[in-house]
Amino acid sequence: MAKTRTNRRTLDSYTVKSINKTVRAGDCVLMRASESSKPSYVARVEKIESDNRGGNVRVHVRWYYRPEESIGGRRQFHGSKELFMSDHRDIQSADTIEGKCTVHTFKSYTKLDAVGNEDFFCRFDYNSSTGAFNPDRVAVL
């Protein structure tokens, strides 16, 4: 028997009940890793959608990679809070969102008075299949 496709609708926002935070497209979020020993994954929400019943909410995300998750690995010049915006996109259950975070430009990150646990910075785009970076070099301060 053919499986009927559930109609999906795009949502402007979604409140994650476990953390009591509202998430919108464009927000950066921390997502639960499959292994509890790993740190939360960081992603940017691109779209939020729900089935007609509203019980199954999914988020379309674009993943940030940590240096150690990249093909070249962590290098001496990578900051401890540095992430790379990847071309890797995915669809996840909204229930895997553990919190919201902020991914700053490097310039705005260096101007923060205090860096919190949810503050990160990004200065590279990363191609997850080739390991290439854009730009391929930056000034190291």
Score class of each variant (00 low, 15 high):
Y65H: 09
A2F: 06
A43H: 01
S13Y: 14
E118W: 03
T10W: 03
N56R: 13
N117L: 07
K111H: 11
A2H: 09
E35C: 09
D95I: 00
D113R: 06
S108Q: 11
T96L: 12
D119V: 00
S50A: 15
Y14N: 06
C122Q: 08
P39W: 13
T4F: 12
D113Y: 04
Y65D: 08
F133H: 04
D27F: 04
G99C: 05
T110A: 08
V16E: 09
Y14E: 08
E68Y: 14
K111F: 07
K81A: 14
R137V: 10
A25R: 03
F120K: 01
A132S: 12
T110W: 05
S34K: 11
K38A: 10
T110N: 13
A33M: 07
R24M: 09
L11W: 09
C122P: 07
V103Q: 01
G73H: 11
N7E: 14
S36H: 07
F106S: 05
S93H: 10
Y41S: 08
E69W: 13
T6Q: 09
S70H: 08
A43E: 00
Y109G: 04
R32I: 03
S86Q: 13
S13Q: 14
D95C: 03
T102N: 13
Y65N: 06
V59C: 12
V140M: 10
S93I: 01
P39F: 15
Y65S: 08
R66D: 06
K17I: 00
V42A: 06
I48R: 02
N127M: 03
F121S: 01
F133V: 00
T102Y: 12
R137G: 11
Q76A: 11
Q76L: 12
G79W: 02
S108Y: 05
H88T: 02
G55I: 11
Y14R: 02
L141Y: 15
L141G: 15
A43T: 01
W63L: 12
D87W: 01
Y41E: 11
G73T: 12
L112H: 07
Y14H: 15
R75E: 15
R123I: 09
S40Y: 14
S18L: 03
I97Q: 03
M85A: 12
S86W: 07
D27C: 00
T15E: 12
G72R: 12
A114L: 11
D27T: 04
N20Y: 05
N127W: 03
N52C: 10
V61K: 00
H104G: 04
Y41P: 01
S128H: 15
Q92C: 11
L112I: 06
V138S: 11
H78M: 13
R75C: 14
G79N: 01
D125N: 09
T22L: 02
E46P: 03
E98Y: 00
M1K: 04
D95W: 05
L83W: 14
T22H: 05
D90S: 15
S86L: 04
L30D: 06
S50E: 15
R66Y: 12
Q92G: 02
F106I: 03
S86M: 06
S80G: 07
H104Q: 04
E46I: 14
R89H: 10
P135C: 03
V103P: 07
V57W: 10
V115K: 09
